[in-house]
Deep mutational scan, measured.
Amino acid sequence: TRVETATETAWISLVTALHLVLGLSAVLGLLLLRWQFPAHYRRLRHALW
């Protein structure tokens, strides 16, 4: 049971790290898009909202 718990903890930390990385890359990508294509971003936002 001790090994299982350790594996579970490792998986949880791995998944958390993955989610953090994905979230950060998504935010960075959005910022980059907004910085590179302001007109396109505004049009996209206008279409979405």
Rank of each mutant, 00 (worst) to 15 (best):
E8A: 04
R43C: 08
A26D: 02
L20P: 02
G23N: 03
R34V: 06
Q36N: 15
A47G: 07
E4S: 13
R42F: 09
V3R: 00
L22A: 11
A47D: 06
T1W: 12
I12K: 14
L22S: 09
A10V: 08
V21R: 02
R34D: 01
L30W: 08
S25N: 08
H19V: 01
V27Y: 11
H19F: 00
S13E: 03
A10C: 03
V27K: 03
T1I: 14
A6P: 07
H46F: 06
V15T: 13
L22C: 11
W11V: 08
H40P: 14
G23E: 04
H19Y: 04
S25M: 07
Q36G: 15
L31E: 04
I12M: 07
S25I: 05
A26R: 02
A6M: 10
T7Q: 13
W11A: 00
R2D: 11
L20C: 13
A47F: 09
F37I: 08
L30S: 10
I12Y: 08
R45Q: 08
H40C: 12
T1F: 11
T16M: 11
A10D: 07
T5G: 00
L30K: 01
T16P: 05
L32S: 09
G23C: 15
A26P: 01
R45I: 07
H46E: 09
W49Q: 00
S13Y: 13
A47V: 09
L44C: 12
T16R: 03
V15F: 01
L30T: 09
R2A: 12
I12P: 01
T1K: 12
E4G: 10
V21T: 15
L31M: 13
L30F: 14
A39T: 15
L44H: 05
S13H: 10
V21D: 02
T16G: 06
E4R: 11
L18D: 04
L14Q: 02
H19P: 04
S25D: 06
L48M: 13
I12L: 11
L32H: 08
L44R: 02
E8N: 02
P38G: 09
P38Y: 11
L14G: 02
F37P: 02
T9D: 09
Y41Q: 06
R42H: 10
R2V: 10
P38M: 09
L14F: 00
L18C: 05
A39H: 15
T16W: 09
H46D: 10
V3K: 02
L20H: 03
T9H: 10
V27H: 00
H40I: 07
W35Y: 15
L48H: 00
W11Q: 00
I12H: 06
R34I: 07
R45A: 07
F37N: 02
W35D: 09
A6E: 09
T16V: 14
L14W: 00
T7M: 11
V15H: 02
L20E: 01
A26K: 01
H46R: 08
S25P: 04
L48T: 07
F37M: 08
R2Y: 13
A26Q: 01
